[in-house]
């Protein structure tokens, strides 16, 4: 296993433990946060707050650099434009999130907790990503023609 795989594995493990501790892996809690008109559970706003409080200084530090701490290139996004794809895709993601209370990270962790429902969601999600790839390739081919 290379160093980049080892550090990515550790980051994934810490990320997953954080998701479990935060309550994000429990769809019932996610839906209780998204249900503003019901008995509202505001906890998940603090998850995002806690995450940003720790990640923001790290990204500020990286803003002044062009390399990782191992002197390898950064692969951070540079786009600034707001396009229709970004907005429509994000609007659609919110609908899918609200339907079952799963987003991609917590769903993978729930698969690791051997939840059959999560596995069904993840297989459908991979199918959706595959459909996206097919649409993208087809539109690239038709643009060339």
């Amino acid at each position: 296993m290379s160093r980049s795989m080892l550090t990515a594995f550790l980051a994934g493990l810490v990320f997953g433990v954080g998701l479990i501790l935060s309550g994000m892996v429990n769809p019932a809690k996610v839906l209780a946060f998204l249900d503003l008109a019901g008995p509202w559970d505001p906890s998940l706003a603090l998850v995002m707050g806690g995450a940003i409080a720790v990640a923001l200084p790290a990204f500020l530090f990286l803003n002044r650099r062009t390399q990782t701490v191992f002197a390898e290139p950064l692969h951070l996004p540079t786009r600034q434009d707001i396009d229709a794809r970004l907005i429509l895709g994000s609007l659609g993601f919110g609908v899918g999130w609200g339907l079952a209370g799963f987003c991609p990270g917590p769903a993978l962790v729930a698969v690791g907790a051997l939840k059959t429902e999560a596995l069904v969601f993840v297989i459908a999600m991979l199918g959706g990503m595959g459909i996206f790839e097919l649409i993208e390739r087809r539109s690239k081919v038709s643009k060339k023609a």
């Binding site: 479990i20 935060s22 309550g23 906890s43 990640a55 990204f59 990782t68």
Partner: peptide, 26 residues
Amino acid sequence: AFTPYSALAGGALIGLAAALLALLNG
């Protein structure tokens, strides 16, 4: 149902993981 401490601590771990992947893997 409000769980502020585990939400904040879990969030901090998520942020730490995001920071690690950015700092170590870019």
